[in-house]
Amino acid sequence: MIHSLPNYIDMKVGLFIPCYIDQFYPQVGIATLQLLEKLGCEVSFPLNQTCCGQPMANSGFASSSKGCDKNFVGNFRGFDYIVGPSGSCVLHIKDHLKDDDRPGEAEHIRKNIYELTEFLTDVLKIEKLDASFPHKVGLHTSCHGQRGLHLSSMSERNLPEFSKPEKLLGMVKGLELSHPARTDECCGFGGTFCVFEEAVSVKMGKDRIAEHAANGVEYITGYDESCLMHLEGILKRMNSNIKAIHIAEILNSNA
């Protein structure tokens, strides 16, 4: 339900669904799309998108991701905003998207791409949501969204505190939010790090989970499905009752 028709109704939003969400977590894409539409955006999903190129670049192969970059620009030019439910993919585009043939369009994309919670907070300036999720939820603060996109303040810095995802979760009826003891320690996913440094990666994930478990959470949520996929993989192996859920699914839920 839309309460009142907002004035951003004409905004053309390109929906960016990272490859692993497309392939393994379609429900996150669906929730993102439905949420944006509910809030009055005109959303389309360019059909030939694949990936942001981050897995290659973070492994040292940025020079091999030119084709991927071009494909991205081809898909996402011409939108007012590009929105994706993944902090790290969005950060990668913001920092590294290049297209020598269409530099202006690449620049427009870099400047107008938003991670979902950032878009809801800074562009749509959402103050209330018609959502309810009566559960105990722990927030995982993924690094690239936090330290790269500044979705929230960082424990290392001596600057005022804020959190965009937390503010949104605060609008969800019935949701009881908790933080792990180390509020913003990395979960250990790290792209290909998760396989090349398997032992450290899993240990980091287990440690994050232990802190959430100590808070008695039913769900761990976040704005980066890649981190959640890693945590979910460990949770399932541990036969834990805790489930991982993307923040888009919570913000779109109406239990």
């Binding site: 497309d22 392939q23 059909l47 998760c194 396989v195 398997e198 460990i234 399932k236």
Partner: peptide, 19 residues
């Protein structure tokens, strides 16, 4: 190395694009 200590995501019946 992924599977050693982690389960894989369950493959959904369709991709987001297909949906």
């Amino acid at each position: 190395p992924w599977y050693k200590q982690r389960e894989m995501p369950a493959p959904p019946k369709e991709s987001f694009r297909e949906w």
